[in-house]
Design a protein around this nucleic acid. Sequence first.
RNA 1: UGGGGUGUAGCCAAGUGGUAAGGCAGCGGGUUUUGAUCCCGCCAUGCGAAGGUUCGAGUCCUUCCACCCCAGCCA
Length: 558
Amino acid sequence: MTADKTIIDNDSDRPLHFLEQIITRDFAEGKHSQVITRFPPEPNGYLHIGHAKSICLNFGLPEKFGGECHLRFDDTNPAKENQEYIDAIIRDVEWLGYRWSGDIRYASNYFQQFYEWALYLIEQGKAYVCHLLPDEAREYRGTLTEPGKNSPYRERSVQENLDEFEKMRTGEYDEGACALRAKIDMASSNMNLRDPILYRIRKQLHHQTDDKWCIYPMYDFAHGQGDAIEGVTHSICTMEFADHRVLYEWLIDNLPVPSKPVQYEFGRLNLNYTVTSKRKLKQLVDDGYVDGWDDPRMPTLAGMRRRGVTPAALRKFCDMIGVTKSDGIVDVSMLEHAIRDDLDKNAPRAMCVLNPLKVTLTNYPENKTEMVTAAGHPNRDDLAERTLPFSREIYIDADDFREEANKKYKRLVIGKRVRLRSAYVIEADKCIKGDKGNIIEVKARIIEDTIGSDPGDGIKPKGVIQWVDAKRHAIFDVALYDRLFNDASPDSGEKNFVDVLNPESLVMKTQCVGEVGLNEAEVGTTYQFEREGYFCRDSKSEGLMFNRTIGLRDTFNG
RNA sequence: UGGGGUGUAGCCAAGUGGUAAGGCAGCGGGUUUUGAUCCCGCCAUGCGAAGGUUCGAGUCCUUCCACCCCAGCCA
């Protein structure tokens, strides 16, 4: 039932965004003939929708202009990182459909080189070991409006710095006792230039280098150099690093690096009704508000994958939102549109009844079962059609029947007709109620010869509803997901984002019935349950269970 | 009150001195065996504000305002 080909529409005629314009200019000026980028996640959490924007950008640019993108883990802080995150990130990038050039890289691959460059800086008199304690260093740093003061260790001799740095490396000092700092300008209006720390002591095992080091480079002393080693031409990061650019350049200019990458910044993605901060997502997981990083309600790539969102939908979304330096808040309806757009074009159709109500077709033979065929997709004949059993008793959704209704109601009503999708037109005669007046069964009749054609008497049904055969069907649970937060900006202001969680973000439906073929539903395929929405088989449940990716657009009002 | 960044419709976003693209949302209509899809139409005399330059300004100049980021030995 899987589509042979996925239909993807990408607007290739959209105007170039600012980074594409920069690359175009660089090519025209002969600065580069190919673009080399890198996607540099820190393995301290799962990738989320915001990372998807960065991934699409970094992998998309070389795809469009020619070049390559590296996958490099920014693993300079062993205290927060681990292998589980590395594995998950690799899986997510691959799932999104991108392939990095060469081997997976790690900043830690270059620790020896960074160390030697630290020695070089010391020898040039541009770095020193500072024994100010963290609290003292903060005081010396000054504030946003007041300049900092020079560290008393700032003028140590090159030899003394070499000796002290060696002691740092060999573990003679405790964490926090001292650090290697660049000698730049304690009075700079840019805090990043106030003698930034280059190396700190961390007596921790590292997931890649084990116990080889007890000193680890800071982000600033690793990122640009890693880019230079790899020949990255355009080092793209988010706006909050704009202040770091001068430091990035200072390091590139003061070190004998093999190439001169240039840093560019773009505005990170913000989505309303969701949080995109690794810290907060981790809290939702750690405190049990959700099932895990891959809970279908999470904006993580793993969560969205489990929910049935496709890579194509995410790429389309990233294409829609554009790339600029402004930081806005994108409306989730854009993401939802991208998801529906892809799924509508590509999801195989099926029928499912969430709230089963038995309908007995009183003029249909007791022991007869006929097979009706239904299209795999209304606008595509390359998706295999299904053959569905049809017999005297069927289920329809309880919401699709009313004893009486106004003209706007286009479903089944006593004395009126409705089309059973891909099958007969039926007319309801009466309904049977239980003790509490609840409707437990509907008695109806089929109109003969209405498969594939309208009733001969010219009385056409007003609506079409889905149905499932009462004898042969699949039975399963369905998880109906809604937005995780009720508040449009859960992480703004002084409110606590967990206070604004949507208590109805997950509603379970049990004993749902669907067409038999659903028993063989594959994990990884998202179906459209007609008139209901898009659903996919849950990848973790032992039994048959479906997750609702998203409902159909519903413009019906009345 | 220092530095960096950003302000074009409810949201995202083109526009690079010549008279405000496109998408999302919304609204109206058409097609339809999914109240889906699809199709058509409507939706900024206005570009954060005020001055100025110019025949002409969202684009240039001046001043002002708002919001975001920076004082981790996090990234």
